[in-house]
Amino acid sequence: MLSLMRASLMTPLNTTAFGLYVRMWHHAGLPAVDGLGGDVGANYEAINASRIDEFEAIARRKLAQPSCVLKLVTCEGHHLGELVDCRLATARAA
Rank of each mutant, 00 (worst) to 15 (best):
M1V: 12
M1F: 01
M1R: 06
L2A: 08
S3A: 10
S3E: 07
S3T: 13
L4N: 00
L4G: 13
L4Y: 11
M5H: 07
M5S: 04
M5Y: 11
R6K: 00
R6E: 14
A7M: 10
S8I: 06
L9A: 14
L9Y: 08
M10L: 15
T11K: 13
T11G: 09
L13D: 09
L13Y: 03
N14L: 04
N14F: 07
T16F: 05
A17P: 09
F18L: 09
G19K: 10
G19Y: 09
L20S: 01
Y21R: 14
Y21P: 04
V22G: 06
R23A: 05
W25S: 00
H26D: 11
H26K: 13
H27E: 15
H27N: 10
A28Q: 11
G29I: 01
G29W: 05
G29V: 02
P31A: 06
P31Y: 01
P31K: 09
A32C: 11
V33A: 07
V33I: 13
D34R: 14
D34V: 13
D34T: 14
G35V: 05
G35T: 02
L36A: 07
L36E: 03
G37M: 06
G37W: 00
G37A: 00
G37T: 08
G37Y: 10
G37V: 03
G37H: 03
G38I: 09
G38Q: 11
G38W: 04
D39I: 07
D39K: 09
D39S: 15
V40T: 11
V40R: 05
G41P: 08
G41K: 06
A42K: 13
A42H: 04
A42G: 03
N43S: 12
N43D: 13
Y44K: 01
E45R: 14
E45S: 12
A46D: 07
A46Y: 01
I47G: 01
I47D: 08
N48V: 08
A49I: 05
S50G: 00
R51E: 15
I52Y: 09
I52G: 03
I52E: 02
D53E: 15
D53N: 06
D53H: 05
E54M: 14
E54L: 11
A57Y: 01
I58P: 02
I58M: 06
I58E: 12
I58F: 03
R60Q: 11
R60V: 01
R61V: 08
L63W: 04
Q65A: 07
P66W: 01
P66K: 02
P66R: 06
V69D: 09
L70F: 11
L70A: 05
L70M: 07
L70D: 05
L72C: 06
T74K: 11
T74S: 04
T74P: 03
T74D: 05
C75P: 00
C75K: 02
C75F: 03
G77F: 00
H78T: 15
H79Q: 10
H79G: 03
H79N: 06
H79W: 10
G81E: 03
G81D: 08
L83P: 02
L83Q: 09
V84S: 04
C86Q: 04
C86V: 01
R87G: 07
R87I: 10
R87P: 04
L88I: 01
A89P: 02
A89R: 00
T90N: 05
T90L: 13
A91F: 12
A91V: 06
R92F: 14
R92Y: 08
R92D: 14
A93G: 04
A93C: 08
A94Y: 09
A94D: 10
